[in-house]
Simulated assay, not measured.
Amino acid sequence: MLFLAGFLPAMLTGCSPLAYINGAVPADASKTDTDLAYGPSPRQRLDIYAPIDARNAPVVVFFYGGNWRTGERADYRFVGDALATHGIVTVIADYRLYPEVAYPGFLQDAALATAWTYTHIARYGGNPGKLFVAGHSAGGYIAAMLALDPRWLAGVGMQTTQLAGLIGMAGPYDFLPITGRDLRPIFHYPDTPPDSQPINHVTAAAPPALLVTGTADTTVDPVRNTGHLGQVLQGAGASVQVIRYPNVGHKLLIGSLSRPMRWRAPVLDDIVSFVASTPAPAAKPEQ
């Protein structure tokens, strides 16, 4: 499925949708530092997009989707452009994929990338004291697990209380029992542990969350996943905002961050507003 009418020019010229939307990013829109290692594996690399005049700016670590099987950080240049040109230092991290790793290997990578960001982002103009994790689809799952399940950040010497917030974009947060055959080996079916589900880690201490989805999403059920997680967070007394965009599908949700498609839904505006209005954690992060 393409991102609707905005990709007609790409179809006519033979470009892929991602090439089309990334091609709309001006070369000098932000300061970029690419191919930075946060671990020894070839997949443990990240790119940084910073506002031209970044100084103590909020930081978003973004994880892309792809069923934990596919994805490349370079394909999400448009995400870095969108956030950096709105005052947010943005880190886009690769992580190891199946079959190189299964659950929880990609969570361990994501935690390591987040810890690297916390330690090093000040030199790129970011404020480690206002650090958000974000992701779309499988990446939304990863971000939610980092924010809600303390095991992963604890493994790299951090705490979930050091996060300013969670930005989940159409993530699968509650998907047991696993019905998709391609997902079963990734999560060790039929022995998938219940604690692999973000929904099972909600407490009142959860970081503030912005959960966004499209009502036309047929890939990740917006009611069972985004809606249910929002309800459970609210019931636990955590701070959560749920936004549903009418007639927006799974791919269009992330595509609407790109310059050609922002007219389709105010996803970027809502993310920028959430980051701006969410205070830094009350507790000073430990060094």
Rank of each mutant, 00 (worst) to 15 (best):
Y49C: 15
Y49G: 12
Y49F: 09
A50W: 04
P51Q: 13
D53P: 05
D53G: 13
D53E: 13
A54V: 10
R55N: 13
P58L: 10
V59G: 11
V59F: 03
V60E: 05
V61F: 14
V61N: 15
V61A: 11
F62E: 01
F62H: 06
F62A: 02
G65P: 04
G65A: 11
G66C: 09
G66L: 07
G66R: 15
N67I: 08
N67Y: 08
W68Q: 03
W68S: 07
W68Y: 09
W68T: 03
W68C: 05
R69L: 14
T70R: 15
T70I: 08
T70P: 08
G71D: 02
E72H: 10
D75E: 09
D75N: 07
Y76E: 03
R77M: 12
V79F: 08
V79H: 05
G80S: 01
G80E: 01
D81E: 07
A82G: 14
A82C: 09
A84E: 03
A84N: 02
A84M: 04
A84D: 09
T85N: 03
T85K: 08
T85D: 05
T85H: 05
T85I: 06
H86R: 12
H86A: 05
G87H: 00
G87Y: 00
I88S: 02
I88L: 04
T90L: 04
V91H: 00
I92S: 01
A93N: 12
A93Q: 06
A93H: 13
D94T: 04
D94V: 00
D94K: 01
Y95L: 07
R96H: 06
R96C: 12
L97Q: 15
Y98H: 08
P99W: 11
P99G: 05
E100M: 14
E100F: 14
E100C: 12
E100K: 08
V101Y: 09
V101G: 13
A102K: 10
A102M: 13
Y103Q: 15
Y103M: 07
